[in-house]
Amino acid sequence: MKMELIQPFINAADAVLAQGLQCSTSVGHLSMEEEAYRRHGVAAEIYLTGDIEGRIILDLAPETAVRVASHYAGAEVPESDDLVRETVCELANQITGNAVTALNDQGFHFRVHPPVLHTSEHGAKSSEDTEALVMSFETERGNMFMNIALRYNRRRQSERAAVVGQ
């Protein structure tokens, strides 16, 4: 997966989390995922279709998700509250939306699908044409994990090349 696809997500996560949590963030661990995705806690998944296809998962340990939701709510939120899951979904939505906005400026066109909760313990294993990159963001409220698996849509690429070549 090329860095040109990843960097907008890093920038967007940094901006969204720093503004929302009102603290500094830093990128911690960053690696290509060899095995199938394994959920840490509360995870939201967003699918992209268009010139680039794939999915983004934002995944927070349960105690981190509670701390983050409580921060946004301005009051303690119990782990069982739907607002905890809603918060993670909306953060995933904001990060993806901001990243896609930056990628659109580079000429890529997408459709962003609404976030869904990732409830199973595991996800699909990355494939040869859809490698998954895992990164963690370190914040005062705890670490947050982002798992990105994207690939260029070859059909859309060849259509674009044909238009440019005309």
């Binding site: 503004q19 904001q94 939306g97 659109n104």
Partner: peptide, 24 residues
């Protein structure tokens, strides 16, 4: 909306929206 690219903004304004604010 969190998706703030120009096509979205233009489409919204053309269809009657008065303004656009990006999330967060």
């Amino acid at each position: 909306s969190s998706v703030g690219y120009q096509e979205n903004i233009v489409a919204a304004l053309q269809r009657g929206a008065r303004h656009f604010v990006q999330k967060p």
